[in-house]
Design a protein around this nucleic acid. Structure first.
Lengths: 195, 195
DNA sequence: CCAAGAATAGACCGATTGGTCTAGAGAGGG
DNA sequence: CCCTCTCTAGACCAATCGGTCTATTCTTGG
């Protein structure tokens, strides 16, 4: 019937999706259970730590997947400007395709739960660290000075996170594209491109 | 005894503080009531719309106050670089003074509730629009080309929001300072300053 | 073929949630 | 003085919360 570990995976997927849309406290376990078509016993069998453990793993999962998307986009892009535009486009499409419900899969849970749950905070921290590393590696490949790559990658990560947040609230993705372009200007070290 | 409207104001203050620290769904009305030393009847008398109306007004309040702080800092700073450093310093101190519990008073509630409550979304939207306007005005005063000021102000707002988010998760404010410096570089239109 | 462990299934729990409702205290104008 | 309106006070409600527990159904190795 159900393959080993399938229920566990389905719970994780459902949880990741719901946490991304509704946040940590805004998502009830009963909803996760119903959407996963799993009984409560299975949840606490696979995640003895309860909601907290489920959230930490869900964030880790979506973070790893999105990180792999980033890495792929970085590899395919010829330069920083193009890469940032592509990443911005990815977030913009995710927002628009979900009626502005799905922004960053980490940010909401991070802000909500980081103060009260160390495991969740650590999971979010690890995801952001991995993303930053992807950006830093790519920037080095495009000739950014070694000692500046990490710092720049942080700025890229910050700006994108903020832009996705703003876009979600405004229900308008244009801020993402403009921010991505400004980041390109910054990394190229040239004066901002005229509009 | 209690002056007119005093209870209402106390409820708003308490709510703003708790929502900033714990988010919308993470904060129960009973806690707001207890911290405000107000009975439930008063809450629903002053805020017939319940929790939703309370949150919208609380976000508006803290947003306006922080916006005034921004305006003051902009006015006092001689140039964009200095101003951004000062704003970053303000957020950094808020985080450190609160054991990384108090980041942006809007972002958490915005991400949590924007999708499910239009009044709250609109309130957050208005706060961000006001902040953006403060930055844009200041940038124009520092010689940024008129048609670029609004767009730059958006990038500044995005980057700061993201940096404060990252700093809170990492429990390390350095990303705020570095992002503020990079923003200064961008606006000055010069190559990034060597480390 | 059967015993043992893995996993499912859901009833059940106390606590808490946001919200409603009735009663009465307090103050100000007539 | 007293009536009226504002506001306080908190009991009460159904619904939902995250979590525990026991019973049962699979699956698999011996």
């Amino acid at each position: 019937m159900t393959a080993r570990g399938e229920t566990r995976g389905r719970l994780l997927r459902t949880a990741a999706e719901l946490f991304q849309r509704q946040g940590y406290h805004g998502t009830g376990l009963n909803q996760v259970l119903a959407d996963s078509r799993a009984p409560k016993g299975s949840l606490y069998f696979h995640f003895p730590g309860g909601k907290e453990e489920l959230a930490a793993e869900a964030v880790t999962l979506s973070g790893r997947e999105l990180g792999e998307v980033f890495a792929g986009l970085m590899e395919a892009a010829p330069d920083a400007r193009t890469a940032l535009a592509t990443v911005g486009e990815h977030f913009a499409r995710s927002l628009e395709d979900s009626a502005f419900q799905k922004g960053c899969p980490v940010a909401t849970v991070a802000l909500e739960a980081a103060a009260e749950s160390e495991p969740i905070r650590a999971a979010c921290d690890a995801v952001y660290a991995a993303w930053q590393s992807v950006f830093a590696t790519a920037l080095r490949g495009w000739g950014v000075r070694e000692e500046r790559a990490d710092s720049f990658a942080d700025t890229v990560l910050s700006s994108l996170q903020g832009a996705v947040l703003l876009a979600r609230i405004r229900r308008d993705v244009s801020v993402i594209h403009r921010t991505a372009r400004d980041l390109g200007d910054l990394i190229d070290g040239r004066s901002p491109s005229p509009v």
